[in-house]
Design a protein around this nucleic acid. Structure first.
Lengths: 341, 341
DNA sequence: CTGTTAGCGCCTTCAA
DNA sequence: TTGAAGGCGCTAACAG
């Protein structure tokens, strides 16, 4: 099929090893010969067979990108880390192979088998597998360099990278408080299923506490991260809490669904109810009102994930890292006049 | 490192070739021996080295997924084909490797080199490379099975798969006409850069023609697929066309940006201006008003792309296929009373 | 500086 | 039914 090292050796009447040396390390080959070889390689369009190299070098330069086969609507921001992640890995000479795994129906041992078969050098696990999910456990057991996004999984060969969810949520709610809101609702995601929901909840509590606002369980409701869920939940919340002036949603999608539902009921946002999102979906900017939210820098996360993986592959020990999200103030939160500072 | 075929041969005091046979073709091995081998393989956790297999079998089972390194906002729906595409390929025993290429700064020959080096069996090219882009030309030259999404590139080994853009746009505009609109604006994408823009334009013209509505160039404007662009463009269009009652946008993002801008100007949608989108982003459902749009079934496209690639790999000739998009009627288009049918 | 030899893990003749 | 030998494309160790 393709041109091999032998072909060009034969053409030049030299040995394959010399060709190999010229093409790689370069040292220990007469300049003249090397140039001939390089020339001939170019001429014949030689491309090294990476698979064969791997066989002898024991380095595949392959990184697995593990993505959960889940309903897309749940995490639309999900794929935004891809471009920067892949690009950064490529800068390190690593290529990315996709491994799509069904969170339900996952057979333990499947992932390790794939990794062994392809001799992957590391994996990046995208969010979608819950704490202690068999996939995560296999990742830990494999003793293969791994970076887990958003979950707290960590080990000798496993780092995790997330946003500072507690801080993000806390700042969101703090912003509401600073805008004069005291009775603040919280529509969370599925707290028992998704790790970050716990953290966002923590942030909510923390901000209230700081401000000396007593916690009221009636202000909090667990939902499902969908627009419809957000709509349903906000309506429930309003009914339960007549004095509530603002609601913090654990993601933008729910916030958007809620705003829509409220407007359908003839309520004005933010005049009658302020809404705070979380995620920073860019479509939020085109909402009416434009959604105030907490923005996650996905491109940055992709880069960091790649870098952390390289660290691990260089023998460093697994660690934890969080990037701080950013508060994006748009127009869905009203500043209550009495607190106008 | 890992367990090899030899290890299990030695443990059983038989030859590696027998083990190989037992593990693969299975024929020509005594049932008893085979069972011993299988048992031992399981016990030792044997996993075949795919790279080594490839070396002898000449089949890598690797498919390249070519994605353009572009600004994310431009095509948010972009990644929605991923899950189904990867999953389907996996069902065919193929794994997916990501190849991210910069549309500008692309060096011709780069892609073929990557494909050769990894011995890829085929590629799927995601949208983002314009007609006749060097990447597309290389794809054609490689004579490797390839499925190109959205562009019309085709060849002996190259199929293309898109949605029926003309039909989609035509149906969108037809819906506006049936709702009683006559003077209908069109905010297109960058027509000179993105192939589908031409098709959507065609559909727009076709629908007008069908209805006997004369074309007016002042009703059409090329924009850039962003929310801000849509906002700017709709304002221009309104100024130029006082009698205009509806606008068709070549993507949802622009439609959303436009709706937002209109509402900021105090205009009501759809009462004063009807808006039609294109893409079917699910967040559109949470807009106020919920966006009427043309929906593309990305999951279906992923599946079809995989299947078309397999066809090509089985020796069939490149072909063209379009899937029909679906009109999703929500509330951003007003039915004008006079035409109430 | 260069060629020879051996082997990575696997499969496929060809013989036994 | 099984084993031995050879080779896929490449590199590393050892001679020369």
């Amino acid at each position: 099929m393709g041109i091999s090292i032998k072909d060009i050796a034969r053409a030049l009447n030299i040995s394959p090893s010399t060709v190999s040396r010229a093409l790689n390390g370069a040292y220990g080959v007469k300049k003249e010969t090397r140039e001939q070889i390089l020339e001939m390689a170019r001429e014949k369009g030689y491309v090294p067979h990476l698979g064969a190299k791997e066989l002898v070098n024991k380095r595949s330069n392959l990184i697995g990108l593990i993505i959960p086969e889940t309903d897309f609507e749940v995490r639309p921001a999900f794929f935004e880390t891809f471009p920067s992640l892949i690009k950064t890995l490529r800068m390190y000479g690593k290529e990315t192979i996709m491994i799509s795994l069904p969170p339900d129906r996952y057979e333990p041992g499947e992932l390790p088998r794939i990794c062994k078969a392809r001799k992957l050098e590391g994996v990046v696990v995208l969010p979608g597998f819950l704490e202690n999910h068999p996939v995560l456990r296999d990742v830990l057991d494999m003793k293969l360099a791994a970076v887990v996004l958003e979950e707290s999984t960590q080990g000798r060969h496993c780092s995790n990278l997330g946003t500072d969810e507690v801080d993000g949520a806390c700042r969101a709610v703090r912003h509401l408080i600073q805008s004069g809101h005291r009775r603040i609702g919280f529509v969370n995601g599925p707290r028992d299923l998704v790790y970050i929901c716990k953290l966002r909840y923590e942030g909510y509590l923390k901000a209230l506490q700081e401000a000396g606002i007593p916690f009221d369980a009636r202000c909090v409701i667990d939902s499902d991260f969908t627009g419809r869920g957000g709509a349903r939940s906000v309506l429930t919340l309003i009914e339960r809490n007549p004095g509530m002036t603002a609601v913090f949603f654990a993601n933008d999608l729910m916030a958007m669904g809620a705003i829509h539902a409220l407007q359908e009921q003839g309520m004005r946002v933010p005049d009658q109810l302020s809404v705070m999102g979380y995620d920073g979906l860019f479509v939020g900017a085109y909402f009416t009102p434009p959604l105030t939210t907490v923005q996650i820098d996905h491109a940055r996360i992709g880069i960091s994930a790649a870098e952390m993986l390289m660290e691990l592959m260089n023998g460093q020990t697994g660690r934890s890292r969080v990037v701080k999200p950013e508060l994006v103030i748009r127009e869905s939160v009203k500043i209550l006049p009495s607190f106008d500072n």
